[in-house]
Amino acid sequence: METLFRFFAQFQPLPTEAQAAIREICSVINLKKNEELQPIGHTCRTIYFVKKGIARIYYYKDGIDITESFSFENSIIARVESLFTTKPSRKAIQIVEDAELIAINATQLFRLYDIHPSIERLFRKIFEKGYVETVNRMESLQFHTAEERYSALLHEAPDLLRRVPLKYIASFLGITQVSLSRIRATLK
């Protein structure tokens, strides 16, 4: 759990009582590569902290598997549109590399907001960061070439190619695997 609280401290340190309250609503889960953390159609009621491994959010469009995002060590993953609306998600979370996650019960977490305002502030900051990342991702797809998106991805996650299948990287970049191979060949 200490890794989780170090992650939180990047946003805001929590008082001891707030940390204890969060510990009470957390559990550790381990999943193997290719296992589903949350399937399509699931209503998200859990926020996950990736302690070890990689997870991805994906969906199907016209029968094609599209990767929306990756979450590496020391990051949060959740289907927030489902979490906040309590409606089933059209997206899934899959484990890309054997993972250890800390599951935070969101229903209980939201109850803690009234008791511990520092927890509410912390998660507001975490969700704000996630929102900005989503906007940046959309703008990247709108304004940058595939080559620029690939270079930026490698800069952000240098060991990505070693850890994630190329088909997931290509779909994340919004291109085919053939196009990704061509880009990789020209940038060597």
Rank of each mutant, 00 (worst) to 15 (best):
M1Q: 14
E2W: 09
L4E: 08
R6D: 12
A9E: 13
Q10I: 07
F11E: 05
E17L: 07
E24A: 12
E24W: 08
I25G: 04
C26H: 06
K32Y: 05
K33R: 13
K33I: 09
N34P: 01
Q38E: 12
Q38L: 14
P39W: 01
K61R: 10
K61M: 11
D62S: 12
G63E: 06
D65Q: 13
N74V: 03
S75C: 05
S75W: 03
R79K: 13
V80A: 11
F84G: 14
K87L: 11
R90A: 13
I93L: 02
Q94G: 11
I95A: 06
I95H: 03
D98G: 04
I102G: 01
A106G: 01
Q108Y: 08
L109H: 00
L109A: 04
L112W: 02
I115Q: 12
P117G: 02
P117V: 08
I119D: 00
I119S: 03
L122M: 03
F123Y: 10
F127D: 09
F127T: 14
G130R: 06
Y131Q: 04
V132L: 11
N136P: 08
R137C: 05
M138E: 11
M138G: 10
S140R: 08
L141V: 14
Q142G: 08
F143N: 14
T145F: 07
T145L: 11
T145V: 12
A146Y: 03
R149D: 01
R149K: 00
Y150N: 01
Y150E: 02
Y150I: 05
A152H: 14
L153A: 07
H155W: 09
H155A: 13
A157I: 13
L160F: 00
L161G: 04
L161C: 13
L166Q: 14
L166E: 10
Y168A: 02
I169W: 04
S171L: 07
S171Q: 06
S171W: 10
F172T: 00
F172C: 03
F172D: 00
G174R: 00
I175R: 00
I175S: 02
T176M: 07
V178S: 13
S179Q: 15
S181W: 07
S181D: 01
R182W: 02
R182S: 12
I183V: 09
I183W: 10
I183P: 05
T186N: 09
K188G: 13
K188T: 15
K188D: 08
